[in-house]
Write a protein that binds this DNA or RNA. Structure first.
Lengths: 339, 339
DNA sequence: GAGAAGCCTGGGAGCGCTCCCAGGTTCTGG
DNA sequence: CCAGAACCTGGGAGCGCTCCCAGGCTTCTC
């Protein structure tokens, strides 16, 4: 992508300066929003930029300045196998929306456990100003390593063990609580749950919400099976629940994708949903609407998650004071046929 | 991300040079894989790099050199509403895999129709060496604009009208043909299709494959309804087909997500799948495995698509001769319960 | 009315690399 | 044995910006 002289096409800052009748320092000041620029100069510069179609060279700005004008979105690979696809796309869209209009590049990287060190070295080598880490298994060392090297980090999804890395997450606890209360309000008495794995905060938070919900309704909190966010494991879990408690009349499933497996088992067992067993899922993924029967579920806004993470990171980079260490995003129930 | 002097952390090329007892020119040659470096010097440099944990400054390389060491993955926003989620994540993973180990940054951008001009200006401003465009509606002007400015481009998904922008796509025609032949081999006589929209090549190619399939079996090719890649539109299409041909006994649906709507209508109408009506989908998305009944479908490898696009682009950047203008990736049938 | 305190501007020294140039050394072949 | 080619190396001029510094001009303030 070079012209015949081997140089990149397009005007340089000096050309803009010349066209506007000012020095390149002034053009730089206009671009970077400095005060101490007269209105006349500012307007002349804007006009010249417009006329020449000038776009500043990112590499030069980064090299000369003290910031990289780029942030990274890091996806931990293990996680992406499981939840990531629609989740990731939503988050990415949110990140992008929030970045729109600012001159900040988004680098997307996927981390494998084995080359974490390379990643940390690369990122803390000054190529980016901060990092967004999408870490779906809760004990990922990456965010801490990055932060230890002085890099601003925001994690998507609550880390399993509390540390001082700021995170943004859906309010999984409250979402699960709402779902359970809904089942209670339906008059269900034996309310089970298919929970996520113990090593993921998202699983534990949704489990806690369910537990709270059944306990406040004075129901038993022992109908619990852990599973791993796949349809088949959801099916297995449902079978186990059914054999342990043939009289159960409701299940809160910690993810839509597991709920599909559960629905299959219920159908095979001749139980009608929702008449015999009410089912509530979580995520409101595309799977929920097309399930048989369509799934009542808890909606989490993945796009808002991405936007909020980005907002938090940029605010930190801008030196904003008094930022909340972490943010929990509200969830909402989506009522369909299954409960 | 700066140290106390406002400079980025880590060693510079001169430090490596000093440590290795050579000049920075030689270090640069080693890094960039030039010939004309003695083995002794090369080894000394590698050792020094290792010891110091040196990682070259991307901005400086880009500024000084004639290439940007980065490629862009551009997603057209309209498309991403529809197909993109799992599709996009798969492609992204493929791109990333293919990029691994090369020092090439991946910039992800989403384009909205209205700011296409900005995007073209930005990209052709020398920030990237080439672009991967994921363009799901077939008449996107972006790839052509980019190519017209001299930027190497590879499109994912066949453009609707042939032009000379290279693309990589799944072999939708053959996939649909296989699916239709499978229905024929099952002894089905009235084989309908729910096709994608007319303005998407993916829709038209799958339609052509179906048409070929029914025609070579001397069946009628008039049971055709266009739809738009949503479950509801698939349901509507199925209703129309049923009212036009109550005796149909098979449907090829051009996307799993539409097939879910079709299955719903068939179920509501009391038709058994596959006994009364056999259904084949396309994509082998996560939806297919969890459908009721599980959907026989045509699998396309989104990850391979991403890898191939990237390979094609990098090969072009490297100046490889005799590259295929475009590549069609094979699809394969996945047999489940629905047909 | 004079000094201080803003406001606005241009000049120029880098940022950390790549790549060209010049020069030295070692291989070839006639 | 010597010219020329091939190999290897270091020096240094940029790449296109930002940001510091110095300085001129306008207001204020007492």
């Amino acid at each position: 992508m070079t012209d015949t002289n081997g140089r990149r096409p397009g005007p340089r800052i000096v050309e803009v300066a010349r066209a506007a009748g000012v020095s390149k320092s002034t053009v730089s000041r206009v671009i970077n929003g400095s005060t101490y620029v007269s209105d006349r100069a500012r307007q002349a510069v804007h006009l010249a930029i417009e006329r020449l179609g000038y776009s500043p060279n990112h590499a030069a700005r980064t090299l000369a300045g003290s910031k990289a004008n780029a942030i990274a979105l890091v996806v931990s690979e293990q996680g992406s196998r499981v939840l990531a696809d629609p989740f990731f796309a939503g988050v990415l869209r949110g990140v992008h929306t929030e970045l729109a209009g600012r001159r900040i590049q988004l680098l997307v990287m996927m981390s494998r456990q084995e080359d974490n060190d390379d990643l940390v070295a690369y990122l803390s080598g000054g190529h980016v100003d901060g990092a967004l880490v999408l870490s779906l298994h809760g004990d990922d060392p990456l965010p801490r390593s990055l932060q230890a090297r002085g890099m601003p980090v925001v994690v998507g999804g609550r880390p399993l063990v509390a540390d001082d890395v700021p995170f943004v997450d859906a309010d999984n606890f409250t979402g699960a609580l709402q779902a359970t209360r809904h089942l209670v309000s339906l008059g269900r008495r034996r309310i089970a749950t298919i929970a996520g794995p113990r090593d993921m905060a998202v699983g534990m938070d949704r489990l806690s919400g369910w537990r709270r919900g059944v306990e406040e309704a004075r129901r038993s909190a022992d109908l619990l099976v852990h599973s791993d966010f796949t349809p088949d494991s959801g099916a297995l879990a449902m079978e186990e629940l059914l054999s342990r408690a043939p009289d159960l009349d409701a299940v809160f499933v910690a993810a839509d994708i597991m709920a599909l497996g559960a629905l299959r088992v219920l159908r095979a067992g001749g139980r009608k949903v929702p008449e015999d067993v009410a089912v509530v899922g979580f995520d409101d993924s595309v799977l929920a609407a097309t399930a048989v029967p369509p799934l009542t579920t808890v909606r989490q806004e993945t796009e808002t998650l991405g936007r909020t993470m980005t907002w938090r990171l940029l605010a930190e980079l801008a030196g904003t004071e008094g930022l909340p260490p972490s943010v929990l995003l509200p969830t909402s129930m989506v009522f369909r046929a299954s409960a």
